[in-house]
């Protein structure tokens, strides 16, 4: 809990549906079965389509705060579009 935030990064894979969240001025999110994550800096642009099912690999960014506050911020390294 008190470790430096940079050490809390670990690579994980998430599967879910890309959605535009209407909180504040809005943000892009991936809504999975057990959690919703916010896509870090709206990248990659290829997956930013409402309703797109994706599998993404990357890290949560505990050192980042956002105006949308809808869940952990997820920095995507790799993605796979499932349809």
């Amino acid at each position: 809990m008190t470790e430096p935030l940079s050490k809390q990064k670990e690579t994980i894979t998430i599967e879910g549906v890309v959605e535009r969240s209407p909180l504040g001025t809005g943000t892009w999110s991936i809504v999975g079965t057990d959690q919703t994550v916010e896509i870090f800096q709206a990248q990659p642009e290829e997956i930013l389509q409402e309703g797109l099912r994706v599998r993404v690999t990357g890290q949560t960014r505990p050192d980042v705060m956002t105006l949308a506050m809808i869940g952990p911020v997820f920095e995507i390294d790799q993605f796979q579009i499932l349809g």
């Binding site: 870090f40 050192d63 956002t66």
Partner: peptide, 13 residues
């Protein structure tokens, strides 16, 4: 402290 995308780092905040 938040970029055009709406996110920012804890250190900047």
């Amino acid at each position: 402290v938040l970029s055009a995308f709406g996110g920012g780092t804890v250190s900047d905040i």
